[in-house]
Simulated assay, not measured.
Amino acid sequence: MNNDALLEVDNLHVSFSTYGGEVKAVRGVSLRLHRGETLAIVGESGCGKSVTARSIMRLLPKNNSKITEGSIRFNGRELTRLSEKQMRDVRGSDIAIIFQDAMTALNPTMTIGEQLMEGVIRHQRLSRTEARKRAVEMLQFVGIRDPELRLKQHLHQFSGGMRQRIMIAMAAICSPAVLIADEPTTALDVTIQAQILDLFRMLQRTTQASLIMITHDLGVVASIADRVNVMYAGQVVESAPVKELFRNPQHPYTRGLLDSIPRLDRPRGAKLDAIPGTPPDLFAPPKGCAFAARCPHAMEVCGLFPPDSVKLDGEHTVACWLQDARARTMPPQGPAQVETASASQG
């Protein structure tokens, strides 16, 4: 393993038991997160992004889910072997998660102040007076006015953007080394999205926290990420520094995602390209490449054997049979400039 990585996930497999059978939601995911880095995980809904995040936090439902294989290490400590009591000491203190929907993640019956203070009292052993002072500071930091008044209010008294700011304040109040943001801008308009992304940048500059940004919005990826992992059908199919991925995508699925977003250099009225077909059934994953049935460049071997991950230049890796020396090459593609994707946010 890479000793300078803060968080390491190796060959993670996660499955869910259902009435219809076993769903293999995550199939061999590996990732590295370094100190102060922002890693984006992108892909269609259902590709395993959120399950990977919840696995890191050990927040999967206990009655029907299990990590069947793999390792999750934080600062060299194996998280999969910790008891629930030990994990409660890790959550919030070392690793914190920001959920997509604050209305379901926060408690509507408790005041915002009670929820902010709860974690810092538990993990940092502060008195209620000290915890309250810290909560006020965090609300000010995330840009909420009149923090003393706001501490006494409940969730329904805040707008969507302010709820997301409260979620960020709650996650950051104990100064964790790793923040996991699970689609934190999905339900927000583009103006509030930009403000939330600026808040993440400021938080990283101030605390040097590492960030995992889970999203399907490539505009968000272009504007905040250092590296990108592209997931499909529970697997990482391509990983690269953000500029390299936008300029030189090598997996047909990554190209399909980039072709499906609005571009300022497209002719007016031009239709967006959609990826044909649907993702595979993870009750019975395909034995070959999971993207083969939707891929315009699929070969016979793609349906028979899973491709190995191949390292290209630098940190760029891709799992695709097209990287084999015997395969035909994809037609050249003009660079998908990062600035274009950033501008697509509005």
Rank of each mutant, 00 (worst) to 15 (best):
V42T: 04
E44T: 01
E44W: 13
E44C: 08
E44D: 07
S45N: 11
S45W: 13
S45P: 09
G46Q: 06
G46K: 03
C47T: 13
G48N: 02
G48L: 06
K49W: 08
K49N: 09
K49Y: 05
S50C: 07
S50L: 03
V51K: 03
V51C: 11
T52M: 02
A53H: 04
A53R: 06
A53N: 04
R54T: 14
S55D: 02
S55Q: 01
S55N: 00
M57C: 11
M57V: 12
M57D: 10
M57R: 07
R58Y: 06
R58F: 03
R58A: 14
R58T: 10
R58E: 06
R58P: 01
L59P: 02
L59Y: 13
L59R: 05
L59T: 11
L59W: 12
L59G: 07
L59S: 10
L60S: 01
L60P: 02
L60K: 00
P61R: 10
P61V: 02
K62C: 04
N63Q: 14
N63Y: 14
N64T: 10
N64I: 14
N64W: 09
S65M: 07
K66N: 09
I67N: 08
I67W: 15
T68H: 07
T68L: 00
T68C: 00
T68F: 01
T68N: 14
E69T: 08
G70N: 06
G70E: 06
G70C: 11
S71I: 03
S71L: 09
I72G: 01
I72C: 02
R73P: 03
R73W: 03
F74T: 05
F74W: 14
N75S: 15
N75H: 01
N75P: 03
G76L: 01
G76M: 04
G76F: 00
G76P: 09
G76S: 10
R77M: 14
R77N: 09
R77K: 14
E78S: 13
L79M: 07
T80C: 11
T80H: 03
R81G: 08
R81F: 00
R81V: 05
R81M: 09
R81E: 13
L82K: 02
L82H: 01
L82S: 06
L82V: 09
L82A: 07
L82E: 05
S83T: 14
S83M: 06
S83F: 08
S83N: 02
S83W: 10
E84S: 12
E84A: 12
E84D: 14
E84N: 11
K85P: 02
